[in-house]
Design a protein around this nucleic acid. Structure first.
Lengths: 209, 209
DNA sequence: AAAAAATTTTACCATTTGGTAAATCCACGA
DNA sequence: TCGTGGATTTACCAAATGGTAAAATTTTTT
C-alpha cells in the first residue's frame, strides 16, 4: 500500500506516480494550486480520482512533491557557476543555461513562478534552506570578480535577480511574448543573442582608458 | 438596478464598486482567477455575496473589469517614452517609472502576471489591441535611436522585454526577493541603483575609440 | 494453482462554490 | 411624511470539489 510507504516502489507504482506528476505539472502550472482540481489531474493522467489518491495523500502532497523535485533542477544551473572560470564566460554561460531551461521546461518555470507569485506559501522553507545558501555563495563569487576588476561593479544580488528575471520571462510571460513578436523566425535564438549582447555590454569593465 | 446599467452611478454605487474591486484585486492577485472565490472577495469587501452580485454580473465580470482598468495604468509609463528626448535618459527614466510602479502597485503587477502566466485566457484580445500597437511604435523609436548611433545596438523588442522582466520581478517575485535579501536597508533604492547601472552599461555605445 | 498483496473501481459524502429569488430595508425627492 | 426605487439580506440551489470506504480486480508470490 503506497502513498507514504517506505518500501521500494514496484514498476507500476513508479510509472503511475510519474504519470500523475506529469499531469499535475500541466494542471498546476496552468491554474495554480487552488485553481487546479484533482478531477482535472485525474483526467489528464488517464486515471480515476480515487486511484490518484492511492498514490498521493492528497492535492497538497502532489503539489509539494512537484516543488521538491523541481528545486533540484532549478538550482542546478547556478551550482555550475565556476568560481575559477573566466568571469564573463561563466556569467554568460549561466544566462544561456537559464534561457535554455525556460525553453525546455516552461511548465516547471510557470509552476515555480506561480508559487512565488502567491507568496510562496508552500515553498518558503525550501527557499530559505536550499536556495538562500547557494545564492549567498554565488553572490560572494561575483563580488570577488568585481573586487578584482574582472567585471563591472554591479550589485551581485540584483545582478542575479536580473538574470533570473530576463531569462524566465520567456517561459512565464510566453503568452505575452508570442503576441508581441508575432510569427517570427526562431525567437529563442533572438532572445539568446539579445541577452548575450546585453549582459556582455553591462559586464565589461567600465573605462576604456 | 446597477450591474450592467447605463444610468449614471449613485455615489453609493460608485463607492461600493470601488470597494469590491479593491477587495477583488487582493484576492485575484493572490490566488489567480480560478483560485479566488466570491465569498473571499465578499468578506474582504465587507459585503455579502449576493450584494456583490448586485454590482457585478459575476466573478468573470469583476476580473475583466479589473484587467481593463489596469491596462491603462500599465501602458502609461511606456506611453511617456519620448521619441524626442535624450535616448539614454528616456530609457533610464522608463526603467525607473516601471520600478516605481512595481513598488507602488504590486497587487496590480501580480494580477497581470498571473493572467499572463495562465496563458492570458481573458486578456489576449486586450494585449493584441492595446499593447501591441504601442509596443511596435516604441520599438520603432528605439530602433531609430540605434540606427543613429545614440545607443548600443540591442534588439528593441527584447530590450523592452528585459526592462519589463527586471522591474516587475520585484513585485511578482517579492516573496523570493525578501527571503534572499533578508532585512536590508532600502531594497528599493538598491534595486533602482542596480538597474540604472545595468542599463547605463549596456546602452552606452560600444566603442570608446 | 492458490493465497496474499497490490491496484483499481464503484458508490458515496460533506463542504464549498457560483449564482438566484424574493423578501426586506433604507435613502431621498415630492 | 410618505411613497418609490435603489440597496441589502435571507434563504436557497445545483454543480463541483477534496476525500473516503469497501468491494472488485489484477498482479505477484508461494
Amino acid at each position: 500500500m503506497p502513498d507514504g510507504s517506505q518500501k521500494k516502489p514496484s514498476r507500476i507504482q513508479k510509472h503511475n506516480r510519474r504519470v500523475i506528476l506529469d499531469a499535475a505539472l500541466d494542471v498546476f502550472s496552468q491554474h495554480g494550486f487552488r485553481g487546479a482540481t484533482l478531477d482535472q489531474i485525474a483526467t489528464e493522467a488517464g486515471l480515476s480520482k480515487p486511484n490518484i489518491l492511492y498514490y498521493f495523500q492528497g492535492k497538497e502532497d502532489i503539489h509539494l512533491t512537484l516543488l521538491s523535485q523541481l528545486m533540484e533542477t532549478w538550482l542546478d544551473p547556478l551550482v555550475e557557476l565556476d568560481p575559477n572560470g573566466d568571469p564573463q564566460t561563466e556569467i554568460l554561460d549561466y544566462v544561456q543555461r537559464k534561457l535554455d531551461m525556460a525553453r525546455d521546461l516552461p511548465r516547471e518555470s510557470r509552476l515555480f513562478a506561480g508559487e512565488i507569485l502567491q507568496g510562496a506559501p508552500r515553498m518558503g522553507p525550501h527557499l530559505e534552506r536550499d536556495l538562500k545558501p547557494l545564492f549567498d555563495e554565488k553572490c560572494a563569487v561575483i563580488a570577488h570578480w568585481i573586487n578584482t576588476g574582472k567585471i563591472a561593479p554591479l550589485d551581485p544580488q540584483h545582478l542575479i535577480f536580473s538574470i533570473w528575471a530576463t531569462t524566465q520571462h520567456y517561459a512565464d510571460f510566453a503568452a505575452q511574448v508570442s503576441v508581441l513578436l508575432g510569427s517570427q523566425t526562431d525567437p529563442h535564438q533572438r532572445a539568446s543573442d539579445h541577452l548575450k549582447a546585453m549582459f556582455s555590454g553591462m559586464l565589461r569593465p567600465p573605462a576604456c582608458d
